[in-house]
Design a protein around this nucleic acid. Sequence first.
DNA 1: CTGAAAGCGCTTACAG
DNA 2: CTGAAAGCGCTTACAG
Lengths: 337, 337
Amino acid sequence: MRKKVTLKQLAKELNLSISTVSKSLKNDPEISEKTINRVHELANFYNYKPNALAVSLKSNKTKTIGVILPEILNHFYAKALFGIEQEASNSGYKIVTCITNESFKKELEYVEMLNYSSVDGFIVALSQETQFLNKFDHYTDLKRDGVPVVMFDRVTDEINCDKVVVDDKVASKNAIQYLIDTGCTKIAVITTISNDLSVAKLRLEGAKEVTDKNDKVSLKQLPLKDPNTFESEIEDFLRENDIDAVLGLDETAAAITINMSLKLGYKIPEEVSVIGFTDGLLSQHSYPKLTTVSQHAEELGAKAAQILVSHLDNFDENYKPKTEIVKTSLIVRDSTN
Amino acid sequence: MRKKVTLKQLAKELNLSISTVSKSLKNDPEISEKTINRVHELANFYNYKPNALAVSLKSNKTKTIGVILPEILNHFYAKALFGIEQEASNSGYKIVTCITNESFKKELEYVEMLNYSSVDGFIVALSQETQFLNKFDHYTDLKRDGVPVVMFDRVTDEINCDKVVVDDKVASKNAIQYLIDTGCTKIAVITTISNDLSVAKLRLEGAKEVTDKNDKVSLKQLPLKDPNTFESEIEDFLRENDIDAVLGLDETAAAITINMSLKLGYKIPEEVSVIGFTDGLLSQHSYPKLTTVSQHAEELGAKAAQILVSHLDNFDENYKPKTEIVKTSLIVRDSTN
DNA sequence: CTGAAAGCGCTTACAG
DNA sequence: CTGAAAGCGCTTACAG
């Protein structure tokens, strides 16, 4: 059983009223210095901490931000989380993180749960299923309750709120352009993530835009079917097609491409150049090391937190949500010429 | 500004007392069916949810578990977290996760913060710095407050609480034995994690115990120095030493060993066998795929949560803490004979 | 300078 | 069957 010291107990022991103790703890100038000292002394002795529940109930603020993430095994979100935590922490906010595992149902439950736990605001990256189902009532509910939401990375046009996104299309264009500039002409796009995802769509569009404009460059697309056979699908594809470069639309696709090329005896980057998205563990520890699009996940998360916090701290009835775009950059390593 | 419906508002609109509304919402049999229905109807209309802060303040329970993790980019902890979440969720508990990034200071702050936020209990894996400094006052404080703690994986003898650990020593012994059984005699142990860590110590001990008993088998040890030069340190080591097997005491060490062997043109597993710890992304996406010690992280997390929850739900004054050991298993893949 | 009172949103023993 | 009252632990306007 929890047994924390309360104001009441301090007051009793000091022969003071609860009000006086409370004010003393805040060094209220209307309290005598002597009393203030007495109170602090006993409070320290008992290691008194005000009960956060009571404070929040009174103030209607929890100084807590709810963070909804689709995945955590993914380096990108883990880094974004780090950025969020840093920024929030610096502004005196705590964060509560929930992982939806790409499930709509989980996302719904978590949003309700956190709202019900009175978090002050939300930072959200939508789950794959939510983007696919296109159902966002849980966020309109938040708006009705007056709880601010900032979406990042996986966003939707359906909800009018602040957003922070990566310019996936431009990133993809730049990656393809880099492949072309380094002499590749037979480019393939491989992805292990669903095309329902806003980011996947944009990346594919970007790739197409560049190759469509360029007669000498062809673009092939490998839509993977089954998570259990990704490897053999990629292996078969690499063997059966005449290509000299692969853009993996996600980190896993690029990592598997490298491994299957190795298996088939293709030299990287001499025979096949490979570029991936997301600068995670797999990119850093592949051999050869992967050239990759860095999405500056930390910065993305930090920016989202910053926007939310500034909202929370300076409430403005007439605020108009905006969308912030964070630039990507290409980290050139050993898998490209 | 938050504007959620309260009992008061419902009561007013229904011309009932707050007590009656509260009881109706709980389908209290002493309330007439007619009233119950009226109340539910309006509550649904407004999507009423009781204010969790108020409920917790009253009940002195938050139904929330604080989880302290040293890292999240590490697959092992991410999976353990998943196990914790599942189990907690099934028992009606929420979890709040904090990542210490191996920092003692962060760990201290988070434990205080979560305690102050009145979580019902803690699940903790100690940070590296905490194990190194050997300072655990923040946990004795919790005990004083009567807040139960379950430690897992990274534990300490200094605190008397429930613990769930992996049998790292046995795991390491089994791994070395497997290498010997498959014909290896010149074995090296490589680690990128600090020897201050309880787990690192145990794994090394296990390895030594087996090789010490076996005249024909030699054990070399590579203590890595600088995170920035891990790769070249391992590369140099592999080139300069005559070895036919490597046990990586952590996933990164094993992954880098594979890559550097590839770079040096050593055939895996023909010339060098490699075994790692932690069945994470790097093990699954290396080429060749890594034989690895699976620590059943999910099970570990689930067990920790289970122990804590059963504590919380059936408080027992005279409970004696125990230590639970979860067995490991060797997942044989392509990096060993 | 100190304290009594009201109130945040709920629950529940008690009264009617 | 319904409601008034006390209380969880705090804060703060008000009184003295």
